[in-house]
Simulated assay, not measured.
Amino acid sequence: MKFYVFIAVLIAAAVISDCKHTFMGTNVQRQKLIHRHVKYNSHMFQKRVEYLNYTVPAKFGYSRSIQGILAYDMLHSGATANVTAGGLGFNYVSLRMKSERSRGLSYDVYIYS
């Protein structure tokens, strides 16, 4: 009986904490290229869509590619972050962030090489 209660609580916790973090690649023993806190206010009755574009600087070398991307939703809302161009294996990335209706955006974005 205790096992079923534990499973029910675990499933409830997973449903309640339905936030949209984006994890791609790896950050294990990788150099952090960028850490940026992206924050935008809400628009009344509209979804907010913003883009974050990043290119690996030449000082890191032209052969460097992106090995890991982490976009952490700080508001724990239903906002999403998707890679629309580049990404893993490329030296650039375009990250599209979309909020819920009438909600702002707040993401911590890490990019690793």
Rank of each mutant, 00 (worst) to 15 (best):
R30T: 09
L105E: 00
Q46P: 11
Q29K: 14
K39F: 01
Y51R: 13
Y54C: 05
K59V: 04
M97A: 02
R48M: 02
A79S: 04
S65F: 03
L10V: 01
I69K: 08
I16K: 12
K59D: 05
Q67F: 08
Y112W: 11
P57G: 01
A79M: 03
F6W: 07
G78T: 01
S77L: 06
F6E: 01
A14Q: 10
M97G: 02
H76M: 06
A12S: 05
T80N: 04
R36C: 06
Y112K: 11
S63K: 13
L70D: 15
S106C: 02
V5Q: 11
E50V: 14
K59F: 13
S65W: 06
S77D: 02
Y4S: 15
F23Q: 13
K47W: 00
S94W: 09
L88Q: 01
F6Y: 03
S106Y: 00
F6P: 05
T22M: 05
A58V: 09
K32N: 12
L52W: 00
G104M: 02
G104H: 01
S102I: 03
S94L: 14
L95H: 05
I69F: 07
G89N: 01
K98M: 10
F3T: 15
Y110V: 14
I111T: 09
Y72S: 14
A81T: 05
K32L: 13
L10C: 09
K2F: 04
G89E: 00
K20M: 11
Y40G: 10
M44N: 14
F45P: 04
Y72V: 15
M97R: 03
A79G: 07
I11T: 08
K47R: 07
F23Y: 12
C19L: 10
G86P: 01
G68P: 03
A12R: 08
Y62Q: 12
L88Y: 00
K2H: 12
G78C: 06
A13I: 07
Y51C: 09
K20P: 11
Y54I: 07
G104F: 00
T80C: 03
D18R: 12
I69H: 07
S77V: 01
S99Y: 00
N91G: 09
L52K: 07
N82K: 12
L95D: 00
V5S: 06
S65I: 14
L105V: 01
L95N: 03
K20A: 08
L95C: 07
F23W: 07
A58M: 11
Y62D: 09
S113F: 10
I66E: 00
H76P: 04
P57Y: 00
G61L: 06
S99L: 03
N82I: 15
R103L: 11
A14C: 08
G86F: 04
I111A: 04
L75D: 00
A79Q: 03
T22Y: 01
Y4L: 15
L33M: 10
I69W: 06
T80Y: 02
L70Y: 15
R64K: 13
L70S: 12
T84D: 02
L75T: 00
F23R: 12
I34L: 13
S113D: 09
V15W: 05
M44R: 15
I11C: 07
